[in-house]
């Protein structure tokens, strides 16, 4: 059974590499989010005092303005950022659709990039071959699979990235709002595949602005504002 539990979760970004005068100016402005930590570092408090539990079966939408901390929370749940305060426990295998193009090599062909992604996921040779067949076919790139991806159009890059990223079925699906580009024909295909993935996952956490997505997929909305939870309701 998958679950996520956060207690008093806190994430702070230290600001390094800037001049002393800027530090003074930054701290001079009365702000809730820019502050000085006990080691005299200027930090941006990205997430503060988050408490929530997400159980199997929940479909959570993270909503809030730009900079509210949605993506930071996703990255924290994925284990990329480690909390400076509080506790985080995640049970279940995580699939992370934050930046689908991460780890892609521009000078390698589409096919090589699929295989590389397989290695990133720690797959063995047979699994990589299966991934190559599945993602290659779904992307619909045909002969372009053997062309270096820096020659791809924006739409083609997204098709490849999407096909690779959605080829794994995780228990916990973390998703940022990026599935928007691509041609109309592909989008219809993409929607179906994404919906399958969402339905088969035990937990979905999606950062979104789109109320349609919330209505269609989610049964709980967590609203973030300036790094704090200001609303948490079942819909």
């Amino acid at each position: 059974m998958a679950s996520i539990r956060a207690e008093d979760l806190r994430i702070e970004f230290p600001l390094y590499h800037f001049a002393r005068s800027m530090k003074k100016r930054l701290l001079g402005v009365a702000s809730r989010r820019v502050k000085e930590d006990p080691q005299n570092r200027v930090v941006i408090s990205a997430l503060s005092d988050l408490n929530f539990t997400i159980e199997s079966g929940e479909r959570v939408a993270l909503v809030g303005h730009n900079g509210a901390g949605k993506t930071t929370l996703l990255r924290t749940l994925a284990g990329i950022y480690e909390p400076v305060g509080g506790r985080l426990t995640v049970d279940g295998e995580i699939g992370c659709l934050i930046d689908p193009a991460a780890g892609m090599d521009g000078l390698s062909t589409g096919r090589d990039n699929i295989r590389l992604r397989g290695l990133y996921r720690g797959l063995d040779a047979a699994q990589i071959a299966a991934l190559e067949a599945d993602a290659g076919e779904f992307s619909g790139l045909g002969e372009f699979l053997d062309v270096p991806i820096h020659g791809y159009s924006a739409g083609m890059s997204i098709r490849l990235a999407f096909a690779v990223a959605t080829a794994f079925q995780p228990q916990i699906l973390l998703m940022d709002e990026w599935f928007s580009a691509g041609d109309a024909d592909f989008m219809a295909k993409a929607q179906t595949r994404l919906e399958q993935l969402v339905k088969a996952s035990e937990i979905l956490v999606i950062a979104t602005h789109d109320m349609d997505v919330v209505k269609r997929w989610c049964n709980r909305v967590i609203r973030l504002e300036a790094g704090r939870i200001v609303g948490d309701e079942v819909v």
Binding site: G79, V84, G86, L88
Partner: peptide
């Protein structure tokens, strides 16, 4: 999937 992500438990 043999990824080290099966279980995450961080306590600051």
């Amino acid at each position: 999937m043999p990824r080290p992500e099966h279980y995450l438990s961080i306590d600051a």
